[in-house]
Design a protein around this nucleic acid. Structure first.
Lengths: 212, 212
DNA sequence: CTGTGTGAATCAATTCACAGCT
DNA sequence: AGCTGTGAATTGATTCACACAG
């Protein structure tokens, strides 16, 4: 990541929550919303909402509040969701198959653009209505129509190799489900989702709570 | 959570990483390890390693370093992993099925103790070699043999109801895959894994990086 | 008078720097 | 000398408090 990320990462994570809550609120017919209300909705404080937004501009009207749908649009723009983001799922085992069929992605404006695997036994099969392609095709597919994010759902032992191919294909974002710290060049952004580590942390806090 | 968590949450997340790296290191035959080495392994700084450990005691020898396998034992104890933790998977759709078959859980010392669903069409079926039970059985199953953590893999619309049943069954930890903020009593610990939110954050950082 | 936007103050986490054991 | 453990300093994030706009 070139320059220092002047935007605090926790702030960005909350922006996603705000966007989601706003979607819910507008669907419920609410058109104007205050930082107070939005905060209550998301389980944070009103000043936090305002501070988070202030990193990007000022979107409300003093004494009034925010236009819910307009604020939502702003947030989607800030998050880079003004256009549909295309994702590729790499590794079509148990988890990859489940992710390929996860309705939540489509529902929230992501497009599952392709399924990839390096196992010839899987390539060509239909999974969740899509044909699995060989990972060798990733680079040319990305060139034809840009893929924004690769979701890595491969076993730990294959993770680094798969990541390198994703990077070589010119993809700039990786959501990594393997419990491995990936080595990637600076211009590629990785986020790790380590389910076992989550269980372990949970185990800690549960243990902690048991000692009241 | 009753008292203030004097232990910083980021610290706990790193402890999991340390434990994992130590497992790898000992498997590779390393018996003594310095904070320097462990840190390099995990991608953090040596002082961070030492500070994190210092919250729980002192496990090294000055001028020498740490006994890798002994430190690993300590970490497992701290994380509450000295005994095998039993997990229940609630919601046996695409994702739940994938999680039920995820080898990583067993490999890291968790035991998948039961699969639960509230859909009668699924109950009784064999999934990944285990029979799916009705969620009504969760409470009595938990009484017979304690379940430490419930993994919620139900759709958003069912999440709160499922969480309430999990809590009513007396389970104290929830790993929540639904994109919903769950309402639970204080003594229950929840961790959220929101895959769509992860994609959205990634989208932000990728966009950010594109503006170089 | 209401509710935003923001510098100032507080609180938390990380990094520094060094004393003390081996 | 080498490396841990830990207060002190620093950096970063959150909360406070108030000026300002409608």
């Amino acid at each position: 990541m070139g320059q220092k990320p002047q935007i605090p990462a926790p702030s960005v994570e909350r922006l996603c929550r705000y966007e989601r809550c706003l979607a819910k609120a507008t669907r419920a017919g609410l058109s104007r919303i205050s930082s107070q209300e939005l905060a209550a909705f998301c389980g944070v404080t009103p000043e936090q909402v305002r501070k988070d937004l202030s990193h990007f501009g000022s979107f409300g009207r003093r004494g009034v509040g925010y236009d819910a749908s307009k604020l939502r649009e702003e947030l989607r723009r800030i998050l880079g969701l003004e256009r549909k983001r295309r994702i590729a799922i790499v590794g079509i085992g148990n988890l990859g198959t489940a992710l390929a069929g996860y309705a939540g992605f489509e529902a929230r404006g992501f497009e599952v653009a392709g399924l990839y695997d390096n196992n010839p036994a899987r390539v060509g099969h239909l999974v969740q209505g899509m044909r699995v392609r060989h990972i060798d095709q990733l680079a040319s597919d990305n060139q034809r129509e840009k893929i924004d994010i690769a979701v890595l759902a491969v076993p730990e032992s294959a993770a680094q190799a798969a990541a390198s191919r994703v990077v070589a294909a010119g993809i700039r974002g990786i959501l990594n489900f393997a419990p491995t710290r990936l080595e990637v060049p600076d211009h590629v952004v990785v986020r790790d989702v380590d389910m076992t580590a989550e269980l372990e942390c949970l185990s800690f806090w549960v243990t902690q709570a048991e000692k009241q």
